[in-house]
Design a protein around this nucleic acid. Structure first.
Lengths: 178, 178
DNA sequence: CGGAAGATTGAGCGTAGTCAAACCGAGTGG
DNA sequence: CCACTCGGTTTGACTACGCTCAATCTTCCG
């Protein structure tokens, strides 16, 4: 991805679907399709975006001749597995507040890594999409945003978020042991 | 893995851990460590088992010289990603009954693929481990087993399971819509 | 026999889901 | 310019599913 924001989503046989990730400029999407030559997930742009397509066949041919390129592909796939691991932990054992806090911290980090403000940003996705990603209903996401605002952790106006107490959010996520 | 059964589990900074998969004879474990040369998950045998270790360095060297072997590794990693996708869907959007039904159907399929009975088997893992894997508490797992038995879907005696109505279980999982 | 680990079952509680209403901002058309 | 619609968001009231705490039971093992 050159610029913009994407969501990727999985879908089941019965038609229901679930957001499996949000992607920002500089990231790579579509690693999941390498096995059976068919993607398990679809991707949708959440705003105007620019991408650079890498045909798998060509990538395979090139990396066959280059151990270095091959290692890069392997590392990217492995990183994707690690990313999914943390999402599984989130979905398997965290409360609504912990999930949203983890989500916001993740966005914050990625904004920072791109030279944007880590404490103030505009979310590109709807409450429903966030909920689908976090395994929550949209009402719960909305309520949790309000709760955070009330606790003085952040200021929210629809999709605009200003993180006031970053450490407070981080403490929330790490208090998962209790 | 040559024989036996393993569980693999992730652990967070705070010490809590979650079962991320159960593995049976013929499967490969440890793909997640290829990126940073360090495994994100640990593995524990649930019964006597035989394994065959494949040092990553040697695998990397070999596959650098063989496009075919490289393709195999890539496909295995991609398959792991797909496997995790279905677990994410399970954790993100299924009820306790649906989760346990999906789990049992998965075990059943894998037993069948190995030439064992798909309808009667001995679980190698505790209720707590199943719960950790499915994002449920052990009591909920136990209760759901009892509920299935009462509904005539299966017979349970501790870790011994006999599936009576396979289609009934499958129907449960697919009714996840509405 | 006594102790420990795992499993089952019960009672009560709490978090997140469901259903519903109201609100807000952006666009559209009379 | 205002009325209207529409998608997304917020908030409220109520419900239900799964969690917590606790007791009991079984099996295994010293």
């Amino acid at each position: 991805m050159r610029s913009g924001t994407f969501k990727s989503e999985l879908q089941l046989a019965d038609g229901r679907e679930q957001v499996s990730g949000f992607h920002m400029a500089g990231e790579l999407m579509g690693l999941d399709g390498l096995a059976q030559g068919r993607h398990a997930s679809g991707a949708t742009a959440l705003e105007d975006a620019e991408v650079c397509a890498i045909p798998y066949g060509q990538l395979a041919d090139l990396s066959a001749g280059s151990a270095a390129l091959q290692a890069v592909v392997t590392r990217l796939m492995s990183r994707e597995i690690v990313r999914e691991h943390s999402l599984m932990l989130l979905l398997g054992s965290m409360s609504a507040e912990e999930r949203l806090a983890a989500f916001l911290l993740n966005i914050s980090q990625r904004m920072k890594a791109r030279g944007w403000s880590p404490s103030e940003f505009h979310l590109r996705m709807s409450r429903a999409e966030i909920g689908s990603y976090l395994g929550l209903k949209l009402e719960t996401v909305s309520r949790t945003f309000s709760a955070f605002a009330q606790q003085g952790l952040l200021q929210v106006d629809r999709r605009h978020v200003r993180i006031v107490d970053l450490e407070g959010l981080a403490r929330l996520v790490e208090m998962r042991m209790h």
